[in-house]
Every structure is written in structure tokens, then in C-alpha cells.
Design a binder for these strands. Structure first.
Lengths: 338, 338
DNA sequence: CTGTTAGCGCTTTCAA
DNA sequence: TTGAAAGCGCTAACAG
């Protein structure tokens, strides 16, 4: 009965002809750009409905010079860490008319930079860069073409906003909590040495130790790659060194899950024998056994706020961003020493 | 020093002028459409490099009538279930020149349909529909505008491919495993009654019971909404009914995590007191304590295969899809009864 | 091998 | 209030 779409798509010109008006009139009605008389309006609206006309966004975009699309660069599309932030972005975009194209940098500076260029070539109207390894200067450079909001960096220009959480403070909170519980020998499962977050959290770990007049023992620090598997392996390595410790601070929740499994495999109870604390507060961290004590990062809010900021930047507003603070979530993997 | 981009973007025409050739020549070099003499090629390439020219994709798209973009409809952008599939899609798209815009239907037929229309208006070249609630007929209808590959449905037309996993068989595998271990009273934490996957898995559960001459007891079936929280609640409700059972089959892994926590809270050991099996095999399921026995769904492969199929459809090929089969992953949450 | 010439479908002056 | 006309930046016949 309908379905002219199956052939040549209906264009604005078709509608104009059908309604007996000029293309400009149809356009005006579509965009509410100018007043149009009642009868013409009616005729056009009828034609649009009958012909199932949908304006071709590609053409609109070319003409208007914007694509109503923003680019998102994540590092790992399947990571729960980014997933929460993406949800925030998704909500932030709701009702804005913008769609998002998500690309993945895979924690590789070169790939990341290529992806950004790709987004730029697609004429996205703005970019959200979640973490990543490219230099701040490169971000600033790209931002001269399109506004960029970045997480995990402190940059600022007319067209770029970066914000980062206070990793050192978060780590301080975590380790302080352990110390308050009476732990003295606290292991730290760190991230890669070249990871900025990891370095800052290590600094927080050290600061907490210092505060409590505890000595920093590099033997208690092992490295992981932020994934479960490597958390498990790191923990195993630590055990091989025969170090004594009563608590573990893991660089992030996923690593903590790996640590947890390593402990389980060895028959070590959590928190009875060893206390464990993570960092991030992933949605699943409330459902581990036992539920994980951790430092809550406002993942969702980060996405939401980044989006608001970017939309602001795009419309040329002056933007201020403030993020909710990091927060200690005491659950059930930590307890008093002894 | 450079940065003419900051002003008006460089166009193909600028390059042509700079290189002293016609725009078509530049276009030909860009697209490799025809042979171009060495000297002109060199001149153009130099100009492109010097001027930092990037072709405007919007214009290319309008001209070519395709957007080099595919649309992905997920139901929940932050769900680990979709995340794995998205990773498969991402890999499937690698090197194809296509980018993807991801939208979320939130398990709501209306919203889903709106999102599809939005993608269509954006002239995506194809759509991947992951699960969802819109009618098959609606999918087929949309597929007349653009090719669609859908998961969780059995549809097929010239421009639409749907494939679904054998949920009943998967559930059969799960429950048979439990029965083989000697369990006789097996609880089933189902999904919403209107969820097709859930109904099919219930059928598999019943079939396994029947095979073993075990009676189906509706009292042993409780409902959840596929999330951790509701798995926990469902389990709590089941305990209130004082039913006896030695094993639980959860509709999916996330629900199983909730069940696991409920059990932990009650001091019930897994698998010593009660065996637990899930469905999906999320990446995190290998890292729960103990690691979850479950039915492995080829999540990543689903994404990869769907993408290959869609790309095939777009290029007008005849496509056949075969998915890896469901598989029982015996880990550590199930053991012999008693 | 290369340039000229029309557009892709829409928006937006500019005049009327 | 409305229409004619001129593009947005690129590609693809069609000649030459």
C-alpha cells in the first residue's frame, strides 16, 4: 500500500512538487526557519506524511557544515569501566539530536591518534576522549579542529577541556582505611609502570604509609595490566616471594577480582585472613563474594558531565566542570587486622 | 607554523588549484579511480601533504549515496553481555572503512523502533539489531530500506538475516549437567515471563527434567529481570517458600551472581551445599569465587559474524551464517549431590 | 590520461 | 510570505 521507499527515496523536491510549493518553503517548514501561510503548511505536511518523507541528513549536514554526531574514543569497548561512562554519555546526549560514534584506541597512542583523525575526517562536531595515551599537546592540537573533552588529563583551552580525578587522594583513602583497621603490611598490585593513574595511586599509597609512619617496602608492590588475569598472576608472584602482608590494595576492581581468585585458590579467606580493597566501584563489585570494598569513581557522572561540557563547547559556551569526589565504599572484603 | 585548518578547511578544489590540475584529477588520485600521470600525481600528493588536506566525508557520502556507517542497536550499552558482542562487531568492522553508531533501545519496543528510524534517517548503510522487542515484521519492514542483521530472531529476506542461538538446547545442557551430578530438586531463576529467551530456556529445563523422569515443580521456578539485584531477590523469595533444592539454574550469569550473593548471605556454600549454573559465560564469570559453571554463548563471535553478514548484505552478496554452538563450561560452582 | 560539466539533497540569501 | 538561484565539497559521466 505504501513503500515508495523501496524505490528512489523521496526527496524534499518531490514533496515540494507534490504540495505545489517551492523547495525553500518545504525547508522552512521542516526547520521552522520562517513563517509560512496556513494553507501551504497544511499542503506540505500532508505531502510529507503521505510520501513518508524523511529529510536526508547527509545533505543537511553537508549544507549546514555539522554532522550532529560526536565521536567517542574509548580504549576498550568491552571493558565495564568504559561501559558505565558510555551510559552516562548516552544519557547526556538524550534529546540533543546528537548521535555518537564510538571508536576504540586499545591503549595504543598511534591507534588512538588514527581514530581521532578518522573522527575528524567524518566531521564529528566534537570528541570525547576517555583516558588514552596520546600526548596532551596532541589533544590540544586536535582540539583546534573540533572541541574535545578529555578525561584523565588536566588540559584547558578555548576548545578543549580535560578533567581528572584525584587518584592520589583515592589511593590515600583506600590505604588509610586499611591502616585504620590495623593493617601494617599492605601489598599494592599496581598497574603498568607507564600508566599515569597507577603512578598517582602509588603516590597515594606511599603518602598513606608515611602519614602512619609506616615504611614503604618496594617488595610489596607488584605490577599488573589492569585486567583480572594479570591481577591473579601478580598475586601469585607476590606469594612466591614469601612476603608477609595482611591486606592488598589493588589498582582497580578488575585486578582485585583476579587477586581475589588467587587468594581463593590458595585457600586464603577474604577478609578473615587477608583484607582486599579495589578502586573504581564497578557495578559488579557489589555482587562479588564477598562484595568488594573499594574506592568509588563517579564513572557514570563522568560520562554525563563530559557530554554536557562538550555540548556546551560546541555551542560556544564557557564551561566549568566539577566532578563528584572519590569516595570510600566499605563493603565486605576488609576487616580489622588479627 | 602550519594550521590553516583553523580557518576555512582545505577543500579538494584548493588542492586542485594549488597543484594546477582539475578537481577530477585530485578525486581520481584520492579514490584510485583511474590512471593519472606521474608528474600530476606527484604535484597533487605534495599539495595534499602541504595543505593537510582531508577529504570531507560528508560530501563524499552525499555524492556516493552511502555513509560508510552502520547502526548498532543494543538494549543496554553498559551491559557486559552486549559489550562482548560489540567487541566482536568492532573487530569485524576493522579495516572495512565503516564506522558504527551505537544506540540503545532499553528493552523498549517503541524506543527501539524510534532509534532504528533515527539510524535510517542518518542513512546508515546497514543495521545490526541485537536482541530487542520489536516485531519481526517491523524488522523486515525496516530492512526494505537498509539491510539488517538481527540476533535473537529467525528471520530471513533478501535484505535481512536473523539468527538465534538454541536456547532450549543450552538450558538442556545446563540442567542435564546438574542431573548428571545427582541433583534432583533443581530451582530455575527465570527471566521475565514475556522474554522469549527465558521461555525457551524454561522449555529446555523442562525437557531435561522429563528426560530424567523428574517431575516439573512450578514452585521451583522464580522470576528475575536478568540483573544481579533481581537474581538476589528472586533467590530470597524462593527461600521464603521453604522449598528444598540442591541446585540452581540461573537464566543468565548476571542473575547467577545475584543468586550467589544471596546464598553467601545465608551462609550457604557453593558448590558444597548448593550447585549453581548460569548462562552466557561473561568474561567476569571466570573470575567469580568460585568461578562460575555456565553455558557459553559465543558472544564475541555473534558480533563478528553479524558484522561479516551485514557487510556481505551491503555489498549484495548471498550470505550464509553459522554460529558456533552453545557449550557447557564446567567450572567450580557445581559438584556431585551430597 | 585529463578537464568540463552536472549534479547528490538540502539550505539560504536575495528579490519580489 | 514566497520562489529563484546559488552553492556545501565531492564524484562521475562525457568528451577530448
Amino acid at each position: 500500500m505504501e513503500e515508495n521507499q523501496i524505490n528512489r527515496p523521496v526527496t524534499l523536491l518531490d514533496v515540494a512538487r507534490e504540495a505545489g510549493v517551492s523547495p525553500s518553503t518545504v525547508s522552512r517548514i521542516l526547520n521552522g526557519t520562517a513563517k509560512v501561510s496556513q494553507d501551504k503548511r497544511k499542503a506540505v505536511e500532508t505531502a510529507i506524511a503521505e510520501m513518508h518523507f524523511e529529510p536526508n541528513q547527509l545533505a543537511q549536514n553537508l549544507k549546514k557544515g555539522c554532522s550532529m554526531t560526536i565521536g567517542i574514543v574509548v580504549q576498550d569497548i568491552s571493558s565495564p569501566f568504559f561501559a558505565e561512562t558510555l551510559r552516562g554519555i548516552d544519557d547526556g546526549l538524550k534529546g540533543s539530536g546528537y548521535a555518537s560514534v564510538i571508536v576504540s584506541g586499545h591503549w595504543n597512542a598511534q591507534e588512538e591518534s588514527d581514530r581521532v583523525k578518522l573522527l575528524l575526517a567524518r566531521k564529528v562536531d566534537g570528541i570525547i576522549l576517555l583516558s588514552g595515551r596520546i600526548e596532551d599537546s596532541a589533544v590540544l592540537h586536535f582540539a583546534r579542529q573540533r572541541p574535545i573533552v578529555a578525561t584523565g588529563r588536566s588540559i584547558r583551552s578555548d576548545t578543549a577541556i580535560g578533567f581528572k580525578l584525584d587518584n592520589e587522594y583515592g589511593a590515600l583513602l583506600a590505604v588509610r582505611h586499611l591502616i585504620d583497621l590495623g593493617h601494617r603490611r599492605i601489598a599494592f598490585v599496581a598497574g603498568p609502570a607507564d600508566n599515569a593513574d597507577s603512578c598517582e595511586r602509588l603516590a597515594g599509597y606511599k603518602r598513606a604509609l608515611l602519614e602512619a609512619n609506616l615504611e614503604f617496602d618496594p617488595q610489596l608492590v607488584v605490577e599488573s595490566d589492569l585486567q583480572e588475569a594479570s591481577g591473579l598472576l601478580a598475586m601469585n608472584r607476590l606469594f612466591e616471594t614469601k612476603q608477609q602482608f595482611s591486606a592488598v590494595f589493588a589498582i582497580n576492581d578488575q585486578t582485585a577480582f583476579g587477586v581475589r581468585l588467587s587468594l581463593y585458590r590458595k585457600g586464603i579467606r577474604v577478609p578473615d585472613d587477608i583484607s582486599l580493597i579495589g578502586f573504581d566501584d564497578l557495578p559488579s563489585s557489589s555482587y562479588t563474594t564477598p562484595p568488594l570494598t573499594t574506592i568509588r569513581q563517579p564513572l557514570y557522572d563522568t560520562g554525563l558531565i563530559a557530554t554536557t561540557a562538550l555540548l556546551g563547547l560546541i555551542s560556544g559556551k564557557k564551561i566549568d566542570v566539577t566532578l563528584p569526589a572519590l569516595e570510600l565504599m566499605v563493603r565486605e572484603t576488609t576487616r580489622l587486622f588479627r
